[in-house]
Design a binder for these strands. Sequence first.
RNA 1: GUCCCCAUCGUCUAGUGGCAGGACAACAGCCUUUCGAGCUGACAACGCGGGUUCGAUUCCCGCUGGGGACACCA
Length: 433
Amino acid sequence: MAMVRVRFAPSPTGTLHVGSARTALFNWLFAKHQDGTFILRIEDTDQKRSDKIFLKDITSSLTFLGIQADEGPYFQSERLAVYQEQVQRLLDSGKAVKEAGAVVFPVPAEEVTFHDLLHGDITVDTTLFERLVLMKSDGLPTYNFACVVDDALMQISHVIRGDDHIANTPKQVVLYRALGFSIPAFAHIPLIVGADRARLSKRQGATAVAEYRQVGYLSDAFVNYLALLGWSPGGNRELVSREELIQAFDLSRVRKTAAQFDQQKLDWLNSQHLKRTSVERLAELFAERLIAKGWLSNDYDRDWLKRITQLLHDRMRVLSDLEEENAFFFQDIPAYEPEAVANFLSGEPIVQQLIELRSRLGLLDSFDTTAVESVVRGLVAEKSLTAKALIHPIRVALTGRSVSPPLFEVMSILGKDRVLRRLEHATQLTAHR
RNA sequence: GUCCCCAUCGUCUAGUGGCAGGACAACAGCCUUUCGAGCUGACAACGCGGGUUCGAUUCCCGCUGGGGACACCA
């Protein structure tokens, strides 16, 4: 069986886009599935728009996704001699001509048919594009020419790319033939679109893989989601590991319809992957983020962070929920949401209850969850309150918010000193209202 | 405008010439100290018109709708 060789060929003129990432993923899965070779090729022939900063973004995003190249990266800007040699062949045979500082290829009028693994045969009339520029007047090759030369010389067996390239393919086929190269198999996969069904754009949220990474999507979850956009493993499977994806991937199961990017489903998948991540691993991810943010020092208390991790493990959607929703763990005095304070921390009875609670908690030797819970419940019983009537105010007093992880755990993790300090702060806050 | 591609719940999808399945979301209920957590439930789709066929969501044609491409960008 012929060796499978595929490539992902981004141009460094922007950050790695979700759509490109999905194309890279399909290529990679296809290669891995049949033990083939995945090649990275950087198409940097647009001198004006290419930038090293984008190259960096692309490679780090691919690394994040766990998509590593078996070969490359090759840079088209370093292969000028190759293109010149090929273009010379066309000039020598009279198939290409020089014109105003560029080399162009007059396309003979004909019907070109190529086979697509998803779409079947596609036929196009070449009079639609009568001539193709091969070498620009700046001496660099055009996309269609460089792409054909590279795919042929790199012995790419399958060209898997977005279906926005369907219109380029007949142009490339014409060039393959003129150069006497054999034509690879093509598979044009559907685009990923935004909520408005048009091409995914920044207007409807993040488009760069790096942004999703920053927000805190797990590599495996993001890959899982991307794989499900336009493909499915069958058998009603949705939550799929990287290994299972490789095992199951098959171009024949790729759909032909553009898929809409749905962040809610991505969130759900991420929460599922988060639940399947070990507490130890999750704590490491937490520490990285917190240290980067300056909320945690390098010699942090590992057991303490692990307790927080355990608590949040099953109830978060993205890693940034840690900083967004649970900042109170890492602050001296939390930020108080005005609405939460207004709803739960007003009135003299509450002040008295919090003062009473504070003095009772002050007597505790052990501040474990059951100890603090029994103090709170004891007070509830004595004052003939409902649990809610006391728990909600305590929550706001300690976290500044009306929503938090289970309160008694939170109290125990915060520890006696901070709980007492915050209760005092909150009673003053309340008394002043 | 021209050419090309596409068409199953709101969204991602499964599926078959013979009862259209799953997931997310939204909704309802339950549980609960709150919740973005958990559990349960109900709702929800084959774009339209012709053919072929005993029978079409499935095959064919047309229409409509959507998208993409029409650069010395990639």
